[in-house]
């Protein structure tokens, strides 16, 4: 099988939501939905689970904050101690602002790059771009059943997709 899948095009988000639910109920598991703007509930239907981006952000924040604090502590207490009027070298309240900034920066970088990594971006070539009418500027919503799905049968799947009332159905080549 050389094809990537069959892609049905819908005229509105609601139709795509219904179609994705039907395809799921039909037993298809390798389905993808493409929309020009986020459609609530769609990711859950096509098999999206709770993503780990908040976890990434937490880890990034902790790393940034702990790293920032340790850097300040090491440089101000161990490597370059300055006795300023007998004040304590480990003057932690004065280290908080920088620690805070680095916590936020670490979390933000982790959230952004975590999003790219989990989505497999940047990826400049993708088979769905071969579909002639695939264009995010149009108010069109796409459901793609992958050829590698166990239940995928070119003819049967096409007949099934036609029952969902799409505007168009195309084969997506690799």
């Amino acid at each position: 099988m050389n094809d990537y899948g069959l892609m049905a095009e819908f005229g509105e988000a609601g139709a795509l939501l219904r179609a994705a639910r039907r395809a799921r109920a039909e037993g298809y598991r390798q389905i993808e939905a493409y929309t020009p703007f986020p459609v609530e509930g769609l990711a859950e239907i096509v098999g999206g689970r709770r993503n780990r981006i908040p976890l990434f952000a937490l880890a990034g924040g902790l790393l940034g904050g702990a790293g920032g604090y340790l850097l300040q502590w090491y440089t101000a207490v161990i490597d370059y101690p300055i006795n300023s009027g007998g004040r304590p070298l480990h003057s932690w309240p004065a280290f908080i602002p920088t620690t805070f900034e680095l916590t936020v920066l670490g979390a933000a970088l982790a959230a952004f790059f975590g999003m790219l990594v989990l989505n497999g971006l940047p990826r400049f070539y993708h088979p769905v771009f071969n579909a002639p009418r695939f264009d995010l500027s149009r108010d069109r919503f796409f459901l793609c059943v992958r050829a590698e799905d166990d239940r995928f049968e070119p003819a049967a799947t096409r007949i099934f997709l036609e029952t969902l009332g799409p505007v168009d159905i195309v084969e997506v080549a690799h």
């Binding site: 993808e32 703007f37 999003m115």
Partner: peptide, 11 residues
Amino acid sequence: GWRGEARHWQC
């Protein structure tokens, strides 16, 4: 290479 996949939108 953004293509608007539903799970991508979720992340």
